[in-house]
Design a protein around this nucleic acid. Sequence first.
RNA 1: GGUCUCGUGGCCGAGCGGUUAGGCAGAGGUCUGCAAAACCUUGUACAGCGGUUCAAAUCCGCUCGAGACCUCCA
Length: 491
Amino acid sequence: MIAQNNLSLFNTLTRKKEKFEPLNAPFVGLYVCGPTVYSDVHLGNCRTFISFDLIYRYLLHLGFKVRYVRNITDAGHLEGDRDEGDDKFAKKARLEQLEPMEIVQRYTLGFHDVMRAFNTLPPSIEPTATGHILEQIEMTKKIIENGYAYEANGSIYFDVEKYTKEHNYGELTNRKLEDLLENTRELGGQDEKKGRLDFALWIKAKPEHIMRWPSPWGWGFPGWHIECSAMSTKYLGDTFDIHGGGMDLQATHHTNEIAQSQACSHKAPVKYWLHTNMLTVNSVRMSKSAGNGFLPHELFTGNHPLLEKGYSPMAVRFFMMQTHYRSTLDFSNEALQAAEKGFAKLMTALKTLKQLKTSATSTSNITALVEAFYTAMNDDFNSPILIANLFEAVRIINSVNDGKESITIADLNSLQTTVNTFVFDVLGLHDESENNNGGKALDTVMQIVIEQRTEAKKRKDFATSDQIRDLLLAGGISIKDTKEGTIWQVD
RNA sequence: GGUCUCGUGGCCGAGCGGUUAGGCAGAGGUCUGCAAAACCUUGUACAGCGGUUCAAAUCCGCUCGAGACCUCCA
């Protein structure tokens, strides 16, 4: 395979770039924390899943056999910080007068629609928390058996103090236990927890709770963190290669996942932890609670106060790919419009690439360029550098097309293969204009119209030719006169 | 308060010790009946102040500014 063993990635656990060496090559286990489906996903959520889609796609391209697991959180996700309060699904269900599972279904379908619009590949397995209650109970039992959890009034809590005697609880965020303790709020008087860092594995259901399951400790529902540990263990094993998620999950959710898995199996669950950075709006993090989020369909239609116009899913995807996954990405209309134009330029060049003429010699070093594509992606999935190199390819394509540079048939073949692979298979982009040209009938009509206009031009009847062009433009079809003739597209 | 990021040309955004990032916008030109597209040329940026070094946007220190996590959130 191509440069498969040259991939390095930034491991949050060690805080440095490491060579990627799968536990059981060529197999790779990849787990990504998925969405909580009690409301629409916003663009910030999408960024994480699109980033991991890039990572998944590149691993596949390198020839790895990847099992990609991304969960759906549809149970037990509490509001508030003390494992008290309402279940998010039940609360939303009350608001909307629906069954909790109706909420789950609605937003799961919505999530899938959005993911499809962004052209992300579906995961190999998409397990739900409600479908794995048994596994979570079993894991909780094992943790209790091993002495790392205790029961209090029908709820089970993880004993962080006990855990820290043998393990470094704050290792993922490089935090000392004293600091963590110092900065955690005091326990409330009615709190059942022994230690203030303790978190729930199982929560006793209050009478009004609709989503509930029987357990050895009575009726209840699982804590938020245990689902990922249980499902990742079930499908990827006690220790697997890559665990990913948004940076906001690092300190609490992932820290607790490590603790649970260690307490259960006595093994470190994950070799490489990958975290994607946040999407910001005016340099403030986009989040549900800040209320500054865009829904994807608002972005596509432009129907939002902060949006000047709509942006297509692929333009947005391209926009995201122009930033490294570990950098914050700041949203603005200006930046999106720049990305939109750059993306259009790339797509145009890819069409030109199909019909390039070859020569006896090449004026550019295509082999070096192709190598640069791999170097970029092998360096912790550096898509911005890859795109910069793709624009070098665009320059070459256009120059050859203009007769200012030349390319051999061998180089052309190599360029066509790799550029198409990286743009479509790795970056996961596709040409939106292609399925948008109105089919064969419109094509026939357009050939006739263009023919008429060309005739008018030959007669130097520019009034007519310009009128045809203007009328088409008003109807959403733009035409361009190139050396090879007139081309058209639906805008 | 603790832990940690970041501050790059008009905008977005790479680079992280010496070599062109790239995109968008702007300027000039080629082409064109005009448009559009395409191509060529063009900007000499790294918050501030010190320090280390033959050499710093890149390492160290301080100052200023922005943000994240520590509390549900990708």
